[in-house]
Computed example of a mutant assay.
Amino acid sequence: MKFTRDHGLAERRTTATDAKAALLQAYKAAHAAADPEREARMAERAARAEERVKRHAERDRLKAEEKIRAEQEAREREEAAIAAANAEKDAREEAEASRISRVVEDEAARKAERDRRYAARKARQG
Rank of each mutant, 00 (worst) to 15 (best):
H7L: 15
L9Q: 11
L9P: 06
A10S: 12
E11S: 11
E11D: 09
R13E: 12
R13H: 09
T14F: 04
A16G: 03
T17D: 12
D18T: 09
D18V: 04
D18G: 02
K20P: 00
K20G: 05
K20Y: 11
A21Y: 06
A21N: 14
A21W: 05
A21S: 10
A22G: 05
L23P: 00
L23G: 08
L23I: 09
L24I: 07
L24N: 07
A26L: 08
Y27T: 10
K28P: 01
A30R: 04
A30K: 03
A30N: 07
H31R: 08
H31L: 04
H31T: 03
A32R: 03
A32E: 12
A34K: 04
P36R: 00
E37F: 01
R38W: 05
R38C: 02
R38A: 09
R38T: 11
E39K: 15
A40T: 11
A40P: 01
R41L: 13
M42N: 10
A46T: 08
R48E: 12
A49V: 04
E50A: 15
E51L: 09
E51P: 01
R55A: 14
R55H: 12
H56V: 14
A57E: 15
A57T: 12
E58Q: 11
D60Q: 13
R61H: 07
R61V: 01
L62V: 07
L62E: 14
L62S: 05
K63E: 14
E66M: 10
K67G: 00
I68H: 07
I68P: 00
R69T: 09
A70N: 08
E71L: 12
E71F: 02
E71C: 02
Q72P: 00
Q72W: 08
E78M: 08
E78A: 13
